[in-house]
């Protein structure tokens, strides 16, 4: 069950490339058990200038109440959070939403990540490895250049194979990560291997992953982001267009993980 609590920035770790990991120490139990893909709403002591908390996918959450998020400065809220120093107070609401399913032991999970979309897949890989599923978990990770690819050591430590792609060729293959994904799907098709795709990243990447997943008829799960005011199903701001009886579902309370075939994108 989600709760709202106070936390303090414990460490602000610069990963290069504009990426920052903020680790928090919670007052109280913190987020507790978090499913990969679940998120928390964070708000600093921002007075009245910035009203609403910002949504962040949880990178990890420990039993002692500590947890972390990955972020980059983009707008007014993230800029302030990236600059926050140890000791800075934040109000946290979470964990919120529904995350990815764990590996079922049959299908290989192909984790497709881009940019600040890494955390849910990082957490999925961590949890899968802890359950002995590292061998059926693979990371496909894309960025503009090598600075966009962070925390690669973790995947190596967990024994999760990582396929990298950069637009400038500075790490891994040159081009989009979706090209590597397609090759992998062709291979799986040929060998009859059962796979599924779990993805989080920039919307153009997710749109491409969705189309590829549909084309290869592979179960595909997208972890989406929409602008949210509350994060718990009240403001109705984070509508996601879907197929089915209702035209919209909500990123915060119905997602943020949606099946690709359900999402009503062009």
């Amino acid at each position: 069950m989600p709760s709202q609590f106070s936390a303090r920035v414990d460490t602000n770790r610069d990963l290069g490339g504009g990426y920052v990991v903020l680790e928090f120490a919670a007052e109280g139990g913190g987020l507790g058990d978090v499913v990969a893909g679940q998120f928390a709403m964070l708000r600093g002591d921002w007075g009245r200038e910035l009203l609403n908390p910002r949504a962040f996918s949880v990178l990890w959450s420990a039993p002692d109440g500590r947890f972390a998020v990955l972020l980059k400065a983009y707008g007014r809220g993230t800029t302030r959070l990236v600059a926050s120093q140890p000791g800075a107070r934040v109000t946290v609401t979470g964990p919120l939403g529904h995350g990815f399913a764990p590996p079922d032991g049959v299908r290989t999970q192909l984790l497709v990540a881009g940019g600040v979309g890494l955390p849910p897949l990082h957490l999925q890989a961590r949890q899968s490895a802890a359950r002995g599923h590292a061998g059926v978990t693979e990371l496909y990770y894309g960025g503009r250049n090598r600075d966009d690819l962070v925390m690669l050591d973790d995947f190596a430590a967990w024994g999760v194979r990582a396929v990298l792609a950069t637009e400038d060729g500075s790490a891994g293959i040159r081009g989009f990560v979706t090209a590597a994904l397609e090759e992998r799907l062709v291979e799986a098709q040929r060998s009859g291997e059962q796979v599924e795709i779990l993805s989080c990243g920039p919307t153009p990447m997710l749109a491409a992953v969705r189309k590829i997943g549909l084309r290869f008829e592979v179960p595909t799960w997208l972890c989406l982001e929409e602008e949210m005011a509350c994060g718990f199903g009240v403001c109705l701001g984070c509508a996601v267009p879907v197929h089915g009886p209702r035209p919209y579902l909500y990123c915060c309370s119905d997602g943020p993980v949606f099946e690709a075939k359900q999402v009503r994108w062009p």
Binding site: E49, C235, P241, Y248
Partner: peptide
Amino acid sequence: RFGNPLPRICETASGMLNSIGLE
């Protein structure tokens, strides 16, 4: 009612805009 297309909200200086569509 099912509401409006997105984006439906955005934050502004000391405020926010919404057009949820009376869902």
